[in-house]
Design a protein around this nucleic acid. Structure first.
Length: 552
RNA sequence: GCCCCCAUCGUCUAGAGGCCUAGGACACCGGCUUUUCAAGCCGGCGACACGAGUUCGAAUCUCGUUGGGGGCGCCA
């Protein structure tokens, strides 16, 4: 066994990578890199009732997108695999057998219903909390078999040593948990699969994990795990429990929030099940019914379709959500790193490589943090501004690849690059689509904003329209439809008429985009092209202010 | 209810007894810039939860109170 540092990230596959999971993964990655060790990825897929098809692929996709490449794990292999917990059954079984044979674990024959009743009874008796009553004599192999034959559910429980445990935590310090809080927990379920608390020890030991960084919600599990390490004669790893990340509202960040937003919209829209099934592209009436009641979550694709149909934006919770919203992976890493860790010197901007250099467990804090989306946005804005043109283009492509098809979808690199330049100051990629998308959409897609039309075209006896009429002549005669030439024409006209540039640019903008928002006017017209610019101006002149005025 | 963890501006945090009339970032407010939006620039507001100790001296140490969080599953 080597002395090298080995950390691991061990998520259960429930879909895309949750923001909290990303933070755990990042810290494990950083610690391993900082100490010249290995970062291992293991998929904990032993709950047969909760596994979601292809969820592991989504997890890997998000992890890779963040650049948190694992040294050992799914798809890359390694010396200590397999890296799917479900494929390590034999190892778990052997370890359970060992404990059983040594009298350190025993069969327990109660059904779930019986356990529930015992818990309830304990509660009514006013006991401190339910602890499984260890029997004086452990059921024999034969008794366990008879129980199984009789249709009972047989589990294996660990005989927890009756003493206080100290968890030496690298972040929290020594945490003492009294013997009274500990009980004989289940290590093998009645379906034969290991529980988390058992498998995690067998697998971490088997994979020679030296440092376990995980969320603080695991703290109370640790004594049991330490006891298991001791029972097997293994050396426990160093433990470090990370503070938890919350929403700004103080609630835990959960995928359920996304469902809630969409569910509320569905409720407000008074849509029935049939309509919902259609919009979500689902065929499971029971699922929708349960979802409506708030009992379950929808698959992410179905939820996405529904959200789009209902025109609501669920909050970003998973890494993939942030990707679709136009954030940069390096920004997510940077921002997430600061949730619980700080370098101490006031620095806030880090690349992944810089984080690898600067990170240390000693500088991880103990207090729970709130996820401030405003600050994330600010980070994204400044990172985009600082990024090289190549990086921006690549990121733009990436965003396009995960977005709904839109007017920008099939633009070539030349145009994409120009768009990036023309929209400088944008905060996320959707901003570009919002600001310039209409320039690449069919003329018929232009929707005229009523207030904009009134203010910039109709006001002052149609000053804006007169400007358009005069200018369109100048524009039509322009030999060179370039940004420079267009800019010159607009400026010259404004000067000649003694108008502020805004009084000229805004009517133009409204005419060609329907709104008051677009890139600089010369860029806007250049991007649109001569034909479509003139066509849109003609159309607006012909219809605006008439009985058949276009648009809402 | 019981056990465990935590506690500095609205938020993320710096601070490891005197360097603190508490620093930075985001947000917010005001101004500048300006052909729109966004960005940018300048300035401002703004916190040591409370109460006892310890000490010449406490944001920093101790205890208590309050508040927040986590756990108490055949989930992970």
């Amino acid at each position: 066994m080597s002395e090298i540092v080995r950390t691991r990230f061990a998520p259960s596959p429930t879909g895309y990578l949750h923001i909290g999971g990303a933070r755990t993964a990042l810290f494990n990655y950083l610690l391993a890199k900082r100490l010249g060790g290995k970062f291992v990825l293991r998929i904990e897929d032993t709950d047969q009732t909760r596994n979601i098809a292809a969820a592991d692929q989504k997890l890997l996709e998000d992890l890779r997108w963040l650049g948190l490449q694992w040294d050992e794990g799914p798809e890359v292999g390694g010396l200590h695999g397999p890296y799917y917990q479900s494929q390590r059954r034999q190892l778990h079984d052997e370890h359970a057998r060992k404990l059983l044979d040594a009298g350190q674990a025993y069969y327990a024959l109660e059904t779930r219903a019986e356990l529930d009743a015992m818990r309830k009874a304990a509660q009514q008796r006013g006991e401190k909390g339910f602890r499984y009553p260890r029997p004086a004599h452990f059921p024999s192999e034969a008794e366990a078999q008879r129980a199984r034959d009789a249709g009972r559910q047989v589990v294996i429980r660990f005989k927890m040593p009756e003493r206080d445990f100290i968890v030496p935590d690298r972040i929290l310090g020594d945490v003492t948990i009294g013997a009274a809080e500990l009980s004989d927990f289940v290590i093998v379920k009645s379906d034969g699969w290991p529980t988390y608390n058992f498998a995690v020890v067998v697998d971490d030991a088997g994979m020679h994990v030296t440092h376990v960084l995980r969320g603080q919600e695991h703290l109370m599990n640790t004594p049991g795990q330490i006891a298991l390490y001791e029972a097997f004669g293994y050396t426990p790893p160093a433990f470090a429990h990370l503070p938890i990340i919350f929403n700004m509202s103080g609630t835990k960040m959960s995928k359920r929030e996304k469902d809630k937003v969409v569910r509320d919209a569905a409720k407000a829209g008074q849509l029935d099940d049939a309509k919902l099934i259609e919009l979500a592209g689902l065929h499971d009436a029971e699922l929708i019914a349960a979802w409506r009641k708030g009992d379950t979550q929808l698959p992410s694709e179905a939820l996405q379709r529904l959200a789009k149909a209902l025109a609501v934006r669920p909050p970003e919770i998973e890494i993939h959500d942030f990707r679709r919203s136009g954030y940069l992976p390096e920004v997510l890493n940077n921002f997430i790193a600061l949730l619980g860790w700080s370098p101490g010197d006031g620095r806030e901007k880090f690349t992944l490589a810089e984080l690898c250099q600067a990170f240390s467990l000693e500088r991880v804090g103990k207090t729970n943090a709130r996820f401030d989306r405003d600050k994330l946005l600010a980070f994204n804005t400044s990172a985009i501004e600082a990024a090289s043109p190549e990086r921006k283009l690549a990121a733009f492509h990436d965003w396009l690849s995960v977005s709904e098809p839109g007017p920008l979808t099939s633009l070539d690199d030349v145009l994409l690059t120009r768009l990036i330049e023309c929209c400088q100051g944008f905060r996320t990629f959707p901003d570009i689509e919002f600001k310039a998308g209409i320039l690449f959409a069919p003329d018929a897609a232009v929707r005229y904003d009523e207030k904009a039309v009134k203010k910039w075209l109709l006001k002052d006896d149609g000053l804006g329209k007169r400007v358009l009429e005069e200018l369109s002549t100048n524009l039509a005669g322009l030999a060179d439809w370039s940004v420079g030439a267009l800019d010159a024409v607009v400026r010259a006209y404004a000067e000649k008429r003694g108008l502020d540039l805004g009084k000229v640019a805004q009517p133009l903008r409204v005419a060609v985009t329907g709104t008051t928002i677009s890139p600089q006017i010369a860029d806007t017209l250049a991007l649109l092209g001569r034909e479509r610019t003139l066509a849109r101006i003609r159309r607006v002149l012909a219809t605006t202010g008439q009985p058949s005025a276009p648009g809402p």
